[in-house]
Amino acid sequence: MSTVEAKAPAGFAPVYTRPKSLSAARFTYCPGCHHGIITRLLAEAIDELGIVERTVGIAPVGCAVFLYEFFRCDFVQAAHGRACAVATGIKRANPDLIVFSYQGDGDLAAIGTAETVHAANRGENITVIFVNNQIYGMTGGEMAPTTLPGMRTVTTPEGRDVRTTGYPLRMSEMLAQLEGPAYITRQAVFDVRHVQMARKAIIKAFQNQIEGKGFSLVEIVAACPTNLRLSPPEAGRWVAEQALKYFPLGDLKVRE
């Protein structure tokens, strides 16, 4: 795998170089997928906090199922939806580890709802990265709990009908009602400004864990260009114009 060595060309100083906690492996995401940006931000946060040697990631089942190949830290593959329970088991077994789970909307807000709600309610001292791209990408574009009303998917060919499938599930608002969580925020990565804000939020979520503040969750409203059938730049605009209507950005709970 060819990688650009981080040696600065003669007479130049580095401004941005590839995060150290990333492995050499190529990302398996589709071109322009926001998972890739989020995965990169995750590595930037781990670098910034210097915790790669004590971090354990939980890989989900979904488009990020290969997450463990992209990092230089220890990883555990969880069954679909069970990442928050697996993370709980690891953190309780060895509280010195920095434990994060990375999950999609199907993983966290459909099959994994109970595990997520109760890990949050216990105030489990873990960091959860929740990628909300309103679709089941890996399995071919099915409706997710966060699919927008009227949105076409392979399981809502005529568009999501709220009368039979309900409304998009706002997990962050739900979790923010609980006492347990220390930090619940919703971010996005459809432009550089939002990428920078999302980066700060992820770092803060890990910082909370380092300081033992309890459960932190960063929801990121993301684009799946493949299933939106839009070019990556257009998919980003679609998130900004459509998805944010249902999933307003901002901090929903911050306990200092």
Binding site: A13, V15, Y16, H34, R40
Partner: peptide
């Protein structure tokens, strides 16, 4: 100008940016 916005947007961590020292 080496602003690195491209690198910050890249979903494959494929871009590195430098500035004249």
């Amino acid at each position: 100008t080496g602003c690195a916005m491209c690198a910050q947007m890249c979903p494959d961590a494929a871009i590195e940016v430098y500035r004249e020292a």
